[in-house]
Simulated scan of single mutants.
Amino acid sequence: MRTPTTTRAARRTAVALAVCAATGVLTLAACGDDGDSGAASSSPRATAPNASDFSGEPPSALASSAASKKAEVKESASRAAESASQRAHDFEASVSAEVERSRQEFTRELDKADGKGNAMDSVSLTGKPLAETDNVRALVVTITNKTDAKASYAVRVDFSDADGKVVESTVVGAKDLAAGDRAQPLAISTKPPEPHLTAKVAQAQRY
């Protein structure tokens, strides 16, 4: 003989089965007999992706870091080379500008000199072999400060052809030469090595 309690339980079971069938839910724990209260419901577990679905390998953090460092080093080296080149260019320009300023100063002093100047006996010329100068005519101008005080010197060297005609002149000098010291700037001709030219000190001024 069924009791009211048994009848109610049977009805609940039937209703639950009907709902599961209608919704298509396959979780057995959810559609089981609610009288089986001890059954624990479980959540679906995530599964690892199939390796065959991927091609290649994921980027390595270490490899990426190494590539970044390599690029940084390359860029740094490029900047250093460019900086060195710029410094060399600036230095060359600075030297050229200083040489030109000195030449202008020497020329002004020679223009003020009386005749050949007051220091002809302080200057001498020594020719350098063309083999040592790649066929460029160059002479060593030896300037000796024979006084007992610091002094500066301006010298003009003339290059003359076989007829004695001056075809080129160059100006050199030495600034702030100490007493008894000497300097040896080069007087360089821009003319070709042939025909032969004769060089001589045309003016020498101490100031």
Score class of each variant (00 low, 15 high):
T27K: 10
A61K: 11
A46Y: 09
D33R: 00
D36L: 04
L26I: 03
A40M: 09
A66D: 11
A66G: 02
F54T: 03
A29K: 09
S42Q: 13
S41G: 07
L26Y: 07
K74P: 02
S37G: 13
S37P: 01
K70I: 04
E57W: 03
N50H: 12
S43F: 15
L62H: 10
R45I: 14
R45T: 11
A71C: 04
A48P: 15
G38T: 05
L62Q: 11
A67D: 12
A67H: 06
T27N: 13
V73L: 12
G38F: 03
P44K: 12
C31L: 00
A63W: 02
R45G: 10
P58T: 04
L62F: 05
D53Q: 13
S68M: 08
S64D: 04
A29Q: 10
G56K: 11
S42V: 12
L62G: 10
A40G: 08
A66L: 13
C31D: 01
A66P: 01
V25S: 08
S55V: 15
T27I: 00
S60A: 01
D34R: 00
A63K: 02
P59M: 04
G38I: 00
A39I: 10
S68Q: 07
S60D: 05
S43H: 09
P44L: 15
S65V: 08
K69E: 07
A66R: 08
L26A: 14
A48D: 15
A63F: 03
D53F: 14
A63N: 06
P58E: 01
S43D: 05
K70L: 10
V25K: 10
G35I: 01
K74Q: 11
A40W: 13
G32C: 01
T47D: 09
S60H: 06
V73S: 09
A63H: 02
F54A: 11
A61V: 06
P49K: 08
G32E: 00
A48F: 12
P58N: 04
A71L: 09
D33I: 01
S68F: 13
C31V: 01
D53N: 15
A30I: 02
S42K: 15
G56F: 05
V25M: 05
A61S: 09
G38E: 11
P49Y: 06
L62C: 01
C31P: 01
V25E: 14
A39N: 08
A71K: 10
T47A: 15
A63D: 07
L28S: 15
K74E: 15
N50K: 13
P59L: 06
P58W: 00
S41Y: 12
L62R: 12
S43T: 08
A66I: 08
A29V: 03
A48M: 13
P58K: 06
D34Y: 02
T27Q: 12
A29F: 02
L62A: 07
A46G: 12
S52P: 01
A71E: 09
V73R: 14
A46E: 15
T47Q: 14
A29D: 06
F54P: 02
P59Q: 06
D33C: 03
S64F: 03
